[in-house]
Design a protein around this nucleic acid. Sequence first.
DNA 1: CAAATACATAAGTAATCACTTATGATTTTG
DNA 2: CAAAATCATAAGTGATTACTTATGTATTTG
Lengths: 108, 108
Amino acid sequence: MRALSDPTRRAIFERIASSRETSVGALTQHARVSQPAVSQHLKTLLEARLVIARREGRNTYYRAQPRSLEPLAAWLQQYERIWTQRIDRLDSYLQDMQRKEKRRARKR
Amino acid sequence: MRALSDPTRRAIFERIASSRETSVGALTQHARVSQPAVSQHLKTLLEARLVIARREGRNTYYRAQPRSLEPLAAWLQQYERIWTQRIDRLDSYLQDMQRKEKRRARKR
DNA sequence: CAAATACATAAGTAATCACTTATGATTTTG
DNA sequence: CAAAATCATAAGTGATTACTTATGTATTTG
């Protein structure tokens, strides 16, 4: 999560993910920072296993490893469950109130 | 995402989310940092709208607002799609290879 | 009403971060 | 083989961050 928290780095990751494979030069072209900065971001993405690198001649091609997003997805799902559970509880609470209201109406 | 990138702050958020409502004191008890540090983390969680605060007497109760995780979930889903698409392509490629192999076997 | 409690804010600090320029290592090209 | 190209690493720097202690502000309690 820390690896993706920086906007520049996240943009780099997104560009890698949206193309099958990208060279450092291509990434630098679209980034607003210098080539060394891009390389440094790539290093932290590598360490987070969010990308893998393949050297070919004097180029290095990076590709995304979205599998590494799975822990984050799992973490999130946990809270989506809690979230929908809360909504369910609210729903049943409201339905309960409606039933009680109808009963009160009948008594009148 | 930046608000959740710090482990201490994330732990605080998790504790808030797992209980319906929590006071600052209760959070401080389980955190490994001082009470002011907890309050500061709560402030950034508030600014990220990941929690809401309710003052009651001299206590402040925090509760999670998991709805704010939705943008992050949406961002993630995008890459899960890419990921499964890639797997599908790999699958069909392997199946294709298998078919070709069978044809070669028949010719022998 | 004075002391205690619960929390927030202020101020200061060491560590980390994202960037820069300079340079190194390797590979291709003319 | 020298020059160019591609990328990584080194070193330095300003900004940000996560924390601390000290203090302020309400609110409750004895």
